[in-house]
Amino acid sequence: MTTNTFIAGKGFLYRFDPRAKLLLLVLLCAFVFLPVSMPGLWLVVAVVFLTTWSSTGFKQALHPLRSILPLLIIMVVFIPLTHRDSEVVLSISGFPLVTTGALENFNLLAARFIGITYMCTLFFWTTPMGDIMLTLRWYGLSHKAALVLTLAFRFIPFIADAFQMIQDSHSMREPNLGEKDRRRQPLADVVPTVTSALVFALKSIPQLAMSLEHRGFGRAGARSAYRRLAPRKGLFTHFFFSVMIPASLWLVFNTLG
């Protein structure tokens, strides 16, 4: 469970107060669900991607996209089958395969999905987990709830790490050189890896509980804190920007006016 989501780097997001950053994250996530123009929505997604790129590098910035690619492919496959009553763009033997309504729907859902993925990823990549926990406590969560939440945040990357590890291990069990290559069965090969990753993750739960309790988690007395969020002079300014950025985007790109 030592999986770390933080990636050290440089840029304004690393200097941004985590409390204000969390508020900005929530407001931006809400923004993508507001009725805004499609170019505006994609522009916001592009800016978030470019920020990720500048903060962590291009190769690293592509990681989230790679992770959600299978889901995007599923969307590409199934969404055209919806909205069959709108204008037909492509049909086979009279069967409407792609319609304008479906394309618009896919465009909207893809922008929201990619946007939210990058916003959340950027938050976790630029904020140390200790600061995230303190931020949650600053917003009023108990230590227990904040710890459980941060452990939950790490559990998905932990499973992803386990998956990678198991895939490495399985890749080392290919037949020897000179022997017949195993017939590649992508789906059949993925199933044991996913199952193993889940078993591995489940096995870690009692170990995690043992470790927590051995370190005194659950004691009745008051708990002290090793870390504190640094008091910042510009905290108000940070919060001001957290509210103003999504509000300005909404004013510029809203489609209701």
């Binding site: 043992m210 470790s211 051995h214 005194g216 002290s224």
Partner: peptide, 28 residues
Amino acid sequence: QEQLLMTTCEDELAFPLESLGMPAERMS
């Protein structure tokens, strides 16, 4: 690997001391 649970070394060592309620300065 079975016993470590935090994301930095100092947080790892501080965890039991936090449980014991040790003051921050002494803990550091």
